[in-house]
Design a protein around this nucleic acid. Structure first.
Lengths: 233, 233
DNA sequence: TCCAAATCTTGACTTTTATCAAGTGCGATG
DNA sequence: CATCGCACTTGATAAAAGTCAAGATTTGGA
């Protein structure tokens, strides 16, 4: 059966300690779907019908205004997205599309709200998750307002290198440069030039492969700050 | 006695439905203080010892990096700030200072966490508040990434005009232009020039007094969007 | 294997934004 | 009433970032 994903969802901090009965209620109306890359899952402004859980693959959250589009964040396994819209019963503020082939669990927002009202443990877990999301966006806003695009790129590379296994000097960018540029709030042309500028600090790029030959130098330029760049805080 | 502020705090959505006993527990260790303008209440990176509630006046939330400073938001009565840090028991991501003479209630973070664990109603209220905060910052990030500084100013003025009583054509900027510039992510010089550019759309400024002579024109330029500019969503 | 499409890079140029350096005007203060 | 300080403005200039156009490179089919 498709029941196998229950365990994966259960392993999320958000659901870990929910009472069995309530968890079952959440799973009852939920289902899992496999999506090919580049599929729009939700659109900005739509009512929030489902809480989404990324089980595998990755999902881009992005936003529009006046004909412009920008990438806001990437959701990776195993995490939820648009939890805030679900809880507030408000329209989505961002759209979402799969970046690669992805398995997504969909839990009806109504069920989430019902269990939320019934299960104090779940409500508390939601708070932890939301507080975490909130702090993530605050960090993004600080990054945008306090740094130039070159500084944002440098700090992004340092973070990405740590995230990629073993902290090797070499790692692959997780998506194409167009998207990376948008995520960092710059144009693709500007990103190309920024990579070139970072050569002075020991950064070399070949396709999606990035190598940081002198982490000390890059750090000195990037000045990473836990209150902007650390996921944990 | 100073007990009078209990009612004010109680009137916050966050505390409205908390059980009397738990509310008392929150108030027991709390106190109210009057601060003059320009007092730093909390500093970025400090442990979160108190949940702050603005009872009167206003508070600026701001952030630092690498010798630069930027204004992130304004907290107005009656609202809390740094709730997320309190809940996650994490260091503040932003500093806070009074903009004007302000009355602030301070509730020990430990008590907030205790009541949070004991009172499901409170936990749910916290969720609502956090979801709201989260969505506010997402809107800010969209504003920053999708708009030029001129567009941000135009939309800010439209919002501020609505916020100021009766939606008159004239209203006063709520703080000095230096701060406004920082809030909008630009320099004071640039703000001056931006105001001048908006004259073409019927905006005139005299000191802190702003007048919008042709709302239609300004709207057509600013293109306000509920998913970025509406507080309510 | 080769082609078509898409991505990425590069160069030239424009726009946007920041910086620096004077100024102006206003309000507080003695 | 004079003046000091500060916020704000203005102009000149520089830096950062975006746009446009053309190539190079990669990718994914046919």
């Amino acid at each position: 059966m498709a029941d196998t994903y229950f365990g994966e969802v259960r392993s999320l901090a958000l659901f870990a300690d929910v009472e069995e009965e309530n968890f079952a209620a959440l799973m009852r109306g939920s289902y899992v779907q496999n999506f090919p890359p580049q599929v729009e899952l939700i659109a900005e402004g739509d009512p929030s019908d489902f809480l989404h859980v990324v089980l595998s693959g990755s999902v881009e959250l992005y936003a529009h205004w006046n004909g412009r589009e920008t990438s806001m964040a990437t959701a990776r396994p195993i995490s939820t997205f648009i939890l805030a819209a679900t809880i507030r019963q408000a329209p989505y503020l961002m759209s979402a599309r799969t970046l690669e082939k992805s398995r997504i669990a969909l839990i009806p927002s109504q069920d989430v709200r019902t269990v939320f009202d019934r299960d104090a443990v779940f409500a508390r877990a939601v708070v932890g998750e939301l507080a975490h999301c909130y702090r993530s966006v605050v960090k993004t806003a600080k990054d945008l307002k306090l740094r130039t695009s070159l500084e944002r790129l440098a700090n992004y590379l340092i973070k990405e290198q740590k995230r990629s296994a073993e902290g090797l000097a070499d790692f692959n960018l997780p998506f194409d440069k167009k998207r990376l540029a948008s995520l960092l709030g710059m144009t693709p042309e500007n990103l190309s030039r920024a990579f070139k500028s970072l050569q002075a600090y020991g950064v070399t790029v070949d396709g999606a492969r990035v190598s940081i030959s002198n982490a000390r130098d890059l750090d000195r330029f990037a000045r990473p700050d836990p209150l902007i760049d650390d996921e944990a805080y």
